[in-house]
Structures are given as structure tokens and as C-alpha cells.
């Protein structure tokens, strides 16, 4: 690995991201969708709070009146899912476009390791996703300004989102390495990300042991506890392994292309 090469590729990739419309559209759609959910959650919360003032039965349901439980936790869950919807649109071009236009032929005959190429592209996309996540910080900042939420779950929740985004990108760059068609790459990413998401739903359908295992494999089960303020090392290890696995597969896939 050569840091200079990684940063050269990262820079080029970032410039190319921000010189196309796609990134701006993805960011705008992401903010519109997450903002809409945030508005709904806050609106519901304030209606319930008002009603609780006059309804003693409702006032006893502390769960409903806890801003962390009713706004922040669902907000992180929703941002996570919207993130899974958006990343394939960012990752689809990473390698597929270079294959389609043939620029990969020059890139792979430059004196750079495949690792540098994959890492540079991965980090560039990660930078875009971090920007998107960072822009949503306005929501909790508003909550902190006008309410009294616990701050720790917000911080750990963001850690979870970053890890989730980083994992989704690694899967996306892998599907981008499989094809020269960006649509195929994005479709594959969607299918695989949703598979990893829906794994969490089958937990109740199977035996306890298998259910726990499937739950552990599910990609967004792991941000659940983080948005409650609990950072479990198994969750972090899950995401790191997920990222390492798909970056490794991407490298293998690039190498396999050379042998064919």
C-alpha cells in the first residue's frame, strides 16, 4: 500500500464525484427524506406531549414522553435505511464506469497496486457518505437546542450510522467490480443490502439459536443498540469484518478479471 497513490486516487475520485450531478441529487434526496421523517417524529412527539398535559393516563406512559425513545431512536433507524437506499447510487460507478469507458486499462497499467485503487475509491465514496451523515447533525442539534435529550445515545448512534454507511459502501464497490453496467451494479447492491436487512425479520420465524445468528448477520440490527447509547464490541467487529470481507472480495474480483 502506498499512501500517496491512495490519496491521489481519492482526490481524483472526489473531484469526479462533485463534478457530476448525481452526488448533489443523492444528497438532496437524502436530506429531504430524512428531514421529512424528522419532522413527522417531532410533530408526533409534540402532539403527544400536549395531550399528556391534560390526560393523566397518557402522562404515566413515560416511554412515549422520552425524546430519546420516541424521536432519536426511530430517527437513527430511518436514516440508516435511507442510507442503505442511497449508497448503491454512489458506489455503482466506482469501478463499473471505468470498465465501461475502458479507463480501467490505463489505471491498472499505471504503477499502482490494486489495493491502492480500491482503497482510494472506497475512501472517496466514504467521504461523500460522511458528508451526507454530517449534514443530518442539524436534526439532533435542534433537539438539543429546544429539548433535553441524552447526548450519549446521539453520539453512539452516529458512530453506528458511519459504520453502517461504511459497510454498505464496501458491498457497493464489490458489486461495481463485477460488472461494467452501473444499473446492474446498483441493482445487485440493493438486493444484497436488503437481504442483509431482512435477515433481521426472520429472527422470530426460526429456532432461537439460528434466530440469534441471523440477527447477528443482519446489517442494521447492530445500529439498534448503538442508538440506545450502548456500544458493544461485537457490533463494531461485525461492521469491520463486513467491510474487510467485501474489500477483499473486490480485490479478488479485480484480479480475476486479469486472468480471464
Amino acid at each position: 500500500m502506498n499512501i500517496r497513490n491512495v490519496s491521489l486516487i481519492l482526490n481524483r475520485e472526489l473531484k469526479s464525484y462533485f463534478s457530476s450531478l448525481t452526488v448533489y441529487i443523492v444528497i438532496i434526496m437524502f436530506l429531504l427524506m430524512t428531514g421529512y421523517f424528522f419532522y413527522n417524529l417531532v410533530a408526533t412527539f409534540s402532539i403527544v406531549s400536549f395531550q399528556a398535559q391534560s390526560d393523566p393516563m397518557l402522562a404515566k406512559q413515560y416511554q412515549l414522553l422520552n425524546i430519546n425513545e420516541t424521536v432519536i431512536r426511530p430517527l437513527f433507524g430511518t436514516i440508516g435505511i435511507i442510507l442503505l437506499l442511497m449508497t448503491p447510487l454512489l458506489t455503482m460507478r466506482l469501478l463499473a464506469e471505468e470498465k465501461k469507458t475502458g479507463t480501467i486499462e490505463l489505471l491498472l497499467t499505471f504503477p499502482v497496486d490494486d489495493v491502492d485503487v480500491v482503497l482510494g475509491k472506497y475512501l472517496a465514496c466514504l467521504a461523500v457518505v460522511l458528508t451526507m451523515i454530517l449534514l443530518t447533525v442539524t436534526y439532533p442539534v435542534l433537539l438539543v437546542a429546544f429539548g433535553e435529550p441524552e447526548v450519549v445515545p446521539i453520539v453512539t448512534g452516529y458512530l453506528g450510522l458511519v459504520l453502517l454507511g461504511a459497510a454498505a459502501i464496501s458491498l457497493g464497490i464489490f458489486t461495481s467490480s463485477l460488472t461494467e453496467n452501473q444499473i446492474v451494479s446498483a441493482s445487485l447492491s440493493f438486493a444484497m443490502l436488503f437481504f442483509f436487512w431482512f435477515l433481521g425479520y426472520s429472527v422470530q420465524l426460526v429456532s432461537a439459536g439460528l434466530g440469534q445468528f441471523l440477527g447477528y448477520l443482519s446489517i442494521n440490527e447492530h445500529i439498534e443498540s448503538m442508538s440506545k447509547g450502548v456500544v458493544d464490541s461485537t457490533d463494531i467487529i461485525y461492521y469491520l469484518c463486513f467491510i474487510a470481507l467485501f474489500l477483499f472480495l473486490t480485490l479478488r474480483s479485480l484480479e480475476a478479471k486479469r486472468w480471464r
Binding site: R12, K15, S16, S19, T101, G102, T103, E105, L106
Partner: peptide, 9 residues
């Protein structure tokens, strides 16, 4: 290369 693949952007 033959088709002169360059980064158009």
C-alpha cells in the same frame, strides 16, 4: 490503449 480511454470529466 486503442480507444484512448481518458477521464472525460
Amino acid at each position: 490503449p486503442q480507444r484512448v480511454p481518458l477521464y472525460e470529466d
